[in-house]
Amino acid sequence: MKFTGAICIAFVLIFVSSLARTNAVVEEGTNGVCVPGELKPCIPAVQTGSKPTTECCGVLKKQQSCLCGYIKDPRFGQYVKSKYAHMVLSTCGVPYPKC
């Protein structure tokens, strides 16, 4: 069980590192640009299931139309599909996308 937790933490660290190194832009959304790196404030809540910050909720609302693109992207899909991501979206009042 502890080994699985270590693997999960390793994946999260790799994900955070990849966001820090990239300015990945997905052409979608209402503003025309989706920037996954802007979701960094949500990582603790998605990782642990803790209450999302106001900043996290603000970013999720701003990028709500980007979520389907993130789900379809192999680099980000597993995080948006996680059980904690569902809880974070719900807490922030952002409906889970129907893609």
Rank of each mutant, 00 (worst) to 15 (best):
K81T: 03
Q78F: 15
C56K: 03
Q47M: 15
P52E: 06
V59F: 05
K83E: 08
G49E: 01
I71R: 13
D73Y: 04
Y79A: 14
K51W: 03
H86I: 05
K51D: 10
K81L: 10
G77A: 07
K51V: 13
G93Y: 14
Q78C: 06
S65H: 07
C68W: 03
S90R: 12
T91A: 13
K61D: 07
K62M: 02
Y70S: 03
Q63M: 07
S65L: 00
P52Q: 07
G58M: 00
T48N: 12
Y79R: 12
G37V: 13
V59G: 01
T54S: 08
G49K: 04
G69M: 04
I71E: 06
C42G: 04
I43W: 08
N31A: 12
P41G: 11
K62W: 02
V88R: 01
V33Q: 08
Q78L: 15
Y84F: 05
C56N: 04
P95I: 07
K81N: 12
K98I: 01
G49L: 06
P36K: 04
E27V: 09
R75L: 10
A85W: 02
T53A: 05
V25K: 14
K51R: 10
Y70K: 05
G32K: 09
D73K: 03
P97R: 09
T91C: 03
I71Q: 01
H86N: 14
C68E: 05
P44W: 00
T54P: 00
C42T: 03
C34L: 01
Q64P: 02
P41Y: 01
P97T: 06
C66D: 00
V26R: 09
C66F: 01
E27Y: 01
G93N: 10
V88F: 12
Q47I: 15
P36G: 03
E27T: 13
G32A: 11
C99H: 00
E38P: 01
E55H: 12
R75Y: 12
G37M: 11
V35Q: 14
G58A: 02
C57P: 05
Q78T: 08
V88A: 09
Q64C: 10
T91F: 01
K40Q: 08
V33F: 04
P97N: 06
V33M: 06
C68Q: 02
G49I: 03
G69N: 08
Q63F: 07
V59C: 00
E38W: 04
E27G: 02
K62F: 05
Y96I: 07
P74C: 06
G69F: 03
G49M: 02
V25T: 15
C57G: 08
Q47E: 14
L39Y: 05
P52V: 03
V26C: 08
G93H: 13
Q63G: 02
C92F: 05
E38M: 11
V26Q: 14
V88I: 13
Y79F: 15
E28A: 15
Q63D: 08
A45I: 09
P52M: 10
N31C: 09
G58N: 15
S90E: 12
Y84V: 02
T91I: 04
C68A: 02
N23W: 13
E28Q: 09
N23A: 14
M87D: 13
G37H: 04
P44C: 01
C56A: 04
C92N: 01
P95C: 12
P52K: 07
